[in-house]
Structure formats: C-alpha cells, structure tokens
C-alpha cells in the first residue's frame, strides 16, 4: 500500500505521522483537561459529563480504539525513528556541543517514556479502575435520579495520597514539556512552520504548554489541599438532609458533617 509506505516507511512520512498522531493526542489531552476542570463546578456537572461519555456505548469504544491506536502509532513510530537515528551514527563523537536544540527537544524520549508509563497507570487508575480498592470508585445519584459513577469523588480520593499526587504532577509536567517541543515540531513536520511566524508559534506553544500544566496542577493541588471536597454522602459516610445548601435540589436525607469530618472518621 502506497499510503502505508509513505506514512510508515519514508523518513518525512514518519515525521508527518508523528505530527498528526501527536496533534490528535494533543487535542485529546486539551479536551480531557477541559472536561476535568468541571471539577470546580457542582459535582453533578462532571459526573453527568462522565456519565454521558460512558453512555455512548459502542461510539465510546470507537473513540477509545481510535485514541489508543493513535497512541500506539505515535509510540511505535517514535520507537522506529529512535532506532533508525541511533543506527545512523554508530560510532559517536568524543565531544559534541549543543548549539541551539532546546532542552525539551533533547529529552523527548525520556519525557515520552515516562508519560507513556503514566498513561498506563492513569488508565488503570480511572478507566479500568483496578489500582485501588472498590471504595475508591463510588457511585452517586444525579438530580434526575440516574445512578452514575461519582467521578468527582474518584478524582479527589485519587489525589489524597501525596505520592500519587506528586506522580501525577510530575507526569503532567513532563507531558507539558513534551508538548513544548512537540507543538512547534508538528508544524515543522507538516511544513507549516516558517521564519515569518516561527517566533509567534514558539510563544503560543509556551503559553499552551504552561497553561496545560497549570490547569492540571490546579486540579491535583485543589484536591490535595482540600479546596475541592468530596460531597458524595455515601463516600463521606453520612446521609443527606432535605435542605442541604450544597446539594440544594437533591432529594435525600440530611448530612450534617462536612468533608473534614469524613477524613477524621476514616483516620
């Protein structure tokens, strides 16, 4: 197949594949982050959003398969390129200085591999849900009475462990760093980076990758520091009352204690 040959055999085709798969994955992580930022709204918001995605059924599996394939392609081609690049100079210099390559560009493999490990953990953590016990994956009832997975609580619970939180912070940091080179680089690889606007592109990239990191870090820090609290009564261990100001409309029994009390109970 000619297309396969161009995209997976030729050097420029491979870089094009990296750029396009990278762009899709970039689009995904931005979407993912905006979804996650709903954690700062009412828990129902994010839970309903998660439920909506889960309820897509076969479409969801289609999307998952697409994203997973993209990721596999991105990693596979990267591995192929790395092997070829190593092979292109088997006897290296005794001394070589770096002239203008950015630090991010020089550690793409390191950041990429760590991010990959993180993605696997992250999927096991929140998608497959096997890294923690069942108590880490509660359910809740939405205003319309649908029983849904309580993603809001899952996130907050997830970041309670400082180790996990730090691992997330680090990984997201590396991913942002990966993007800092990847974003400019993808424009070069598809031939859209020119001297006329490369400075602008580089600035946009810095803003985007820093914002991406800050957005993610905000969630982790907020969860860790208790700025975002668990509001699921079953998780907290209390029932709700009718006139709860937090849940407002929810028709359930009262809850008196706040989330801090939950923590006390658990400890």
């Amino acid at each position: 197949m000619k297309v396969i040959h161009v995209l997976f055999r030729s050097s420029i085709g491979k870089k094009f594949t990296m750029a396009v798969s990278g762009f899709i994955l970039f689009g995904f992580v931005i979407g993912h982050l905006s979804g996650n930022l709903q954690i700062f709204a009412h828990p129902d918001k994010i839970n309903a959003y998660a439920h909506f995605i889960e309820s897509l059924g076969p479409a969801l599996w289609g999307i998952r398969l697409f994203l997973l394939t993209t990721l596999v392609v991105h990693v596979w081609v990267a591995a192929q390129l790395t092997i070829e690049n190593k092979r292109a100079r088997q006897k290296n210099y005794d001394k070589q200085v770096t002239l203008r390559a950015t630090l991010a560009s020089r550690y793409m493999r390191v950041s990429g591999v760590i991010v990959l490990a993180f993605i696997i953990y992250h999927l096991l953590h929140f998608t497959v849900r096997v890294t923690h016990g069942t108590e880490a994956y509660p359910t809740t009832i939405l205003a319309d009475g649908t029983k849904v997975r309580d993603v809001h609580s899952m996130i907050v619970l997830g970041f309670k462990s400082p180790y996990i939180a730090i691992f997330y912070l680090l990984s997201v940091g590396l991913l942002s760093w990966h993007l800092a080179h990847g974003l400019v680089s993808m424009f070069q690889s598809v031939g859209l980076r020119t001297r006329a606007w490369s400075h602008v592109l580089e600035r946009i990239t810095v803003v985007l990758s820093v914002s991406y990191f800050l957005g993610n870090a905000l969630i982790v820090v907020a969860a860790m520091s208790g700025k975002v609290r668990i509001q699921n009564p079953s998780v907290v261990g209390f029932t709700c009352r009718d006139t709860c100001e937090i849940c407002g409309l929810r028709n359930a029994e009262a809850i008196v204690e706040n989330a801090d009390a939950v923590e006390d109970n658990q400890s």
């Binding site: 870089k15 390129l81 690049n85 092979r87 292109a88 002239l99 560009s105 080179h181 680089s185």
Partner: peptide
C-alpha cells in the same frame, strides 16, 4: 528523499542543530 533514506541518514527531529552549524 527516497535516496536520502536509502543512504542511511537519520531522521530530522526538528532541533535545527544543522542550521546552527
């Protein structure tokens, strides 16, 4: 490009060391 690939050169990783050198 095909000839370049056959000759055993590596791939571009957009670091631009070439242009600086």
């Amino acid at each position: 490009v095909a000839t370049m690939d056959e000759a055993g050169f590596g791939n571009c990783t957009n670091q631009y060391e070439c242009s600086a050198a």
